[in-house]
C-alpha cells in the first residue's frame, strides 16, 4: 500500500476525531453518552486521541436502568477512574420506585421509561446542547439514514423526513436554546471495524464479550442470562452454557450467543464466520417492524 494512504481504520479514526473536535469547538455544553459497551469504549479512545494531551473536554453520561450486568457497572467505574474522566450516572429513580421493570411492563414500556425518558431527563438536567452516541449506521435500517449531526427538537425527537442535508465534512451545528444535536462519530464504522480497532489499539472492554460458562435460560432462539431475579416460565431451567454477549444492554434484553471465543482473535474470527447480525439478540429491535425508528423518533439514541 502507498505509504501516504491511510488504512480504512485510520481513515475512520481521522473522520471520527474531526467530528468530535467540531462538536467541542461549536457547542457550548457537549456530553458523551457512555453505555459501557464496545462502541463506547472505542468512542472514548477516539476522544482521548482527539484532545491529546488534554483531558476529555466533556463528561461521560451513563443512563443506568439498574438492569445492567454487574460486570458492566464494575467495569464502568474502574474505566472512568483510570481515565480521570467525569462520570455522571443517571437513573429514572421515580419510575423504578413506582415498580418499573421489564418483567411487569414488557420491554417496550420499560425501555421508554428507563432509557428514553431517563436519557431525555438527564440531557435536560445537564443543559447539554450536544450529545455523542456510539450508534453506527450498519446496526439497523433506520440508522442507515441518520445524519452524523442529528437534529433533535425541544422534546428530543427525531424527524426522519426533515433531516438537514449533510455534505462533505461540513456539519451544521446551529440550534436554538432547548434544541440539541445527537452526534454519531462512529456512523461509518461497522461491527467488524469496531472489533478490529479494539484489537489494534488494545482497548479494554467488559469481560462479558469473552466466552465463558454462564448461567443461561434458553427461551425460543434466545439465550437469556440469569440476573436480576428474572422470573422463569414454566418448564424453563437455567443451564451453564459456554457463551458470550455480542452486544450489551440490559440483562433481560440482551441475549447471549453460544460461543467459545474467549480471546480477541477468536472473537474476530467468529465474526468473520457469522451469518447473523449483532442486534439479532436485542429484543427491543424486534418488538415490531420499524420499532427502532419509532423509538428514535421519541428520543431514543
Amino acid at each position: 500500500m502507498d505509504s501516504r494512504t491511510l488504512s480504512h481504520l485510520r481513515a475512520l479514526e481521522a473522520e471520527s476525531i474531526h467530528i468530535m473536535r467540531e462538536v467541542v469547538a461549536e457547542f457550548a455544553k457537549p456530553v458523551m453518552l457512555y453505555s459501557i459497551g464496545k462502541d463506547s469504549s472505542v468512542m472514548v479512545r477516539l476522544a482521548q486521541k482527539a484532545f491529546f494531551p488534554g483531558k476529555l473536554p466533556f463528561p461521560l453520561l451513563h443512563v443506568d436502568t439498574t438492569y445492567k450486568f454487574q460486570e458492566m457497572i464494575e467495569f464502568r467505574d474502574q474505566f472512568a477512574k483510570d481515565l480521570g474522566a467525569e462520570l455522571i450516572v443517571h437513573t429514572n429513580q421515580k419510575a423504578i420506585d413506582e415498580g418499573a421493570n421489564p418483567f411487569k411492563l414488557g420491554t417496550s414500556k420499560c425501555c421508554a421509561l428507563l432509557k428514553t425518558r431517563a436519557l431525555l431527563d438527564a440531557l435536560e438536567a445537564g443543559g447539554y446542547d450536544a450529545a455523542f452516541g456510539g450508534a453506527r449506521r450498519d446496526e439497523e435500517k433506520s440508522r442507515a439514514k441518520e445524519r452524523v449531526f442529528s437534529f433533535r427538537d425541544k422534546f428530543g425527537q427525531w424527524d426522519p423526513k426533515s433531516q438537514r442535508p449533510e455534505l462533505w465534512s461540513l456539519y451544521n451545528s446551529k440550534v436554538e436554546k432547548g434544541e440539541s444535536i445527537r452526534v454519531f462519530p462512529l456512523s461509518n464504522w461497522t461491527e467488524m471495524d469496531v472489533w478490529a480497532y479494539i484489537e489494534l489499539e488494545n482497548i479494554p472492554i467488559v469481560p462479558l464479550y469473552y466466552a465463558k460458562e454462564r448461567e443461561m435460560v434458553v427461551r425460543g432462539n434466545q439465550l437469556i442470562p440469569l440476573e436480576h431475579n428474572m422470573p422463569l416460565n414454566p418448564g424453563e431451567k437455567p443451564q451453564m452454557i459456554m457463551s458470550r454477549m455480542r452486544s450489551l444492554g440490559c440483562t433481560y434484553c440482551t441475549g447471549g450467543i453460544a460461543s467459545d471465543a474467549d480471546t480477541m482473535p477468536k472473537i474476530i474470527n467468529e465474526l468473520v464466520q457469522f451469518r447473523r447480525s449483532e442486534r439479532e439478540n436485542r429484543i427491543i429491535d424486534h418488538d415490531q417492524e420499524g420499532s427502532m425508528e419509532i423509538k428514535k423518533r421519541e428520543g431514543y439514541f
Binding site: R137, D138, K141, R143, A144, K145, P160, G290
Partner: peptide, 17 residues
C-alpha cells in the same frame, strides 16, 4: 430503511451501506 419508504415503495433519503 424508513417506514414511509417501505410503505410507499420509494427511497426518500440517502442511506449509507
Amino acid at each position: 430503511g424508513l417506514r414511509a419508504e417501505r410503505e410507499q415503495g420509494i427511497t426518500i433519503d440517502v442511506a449509507y451501506r
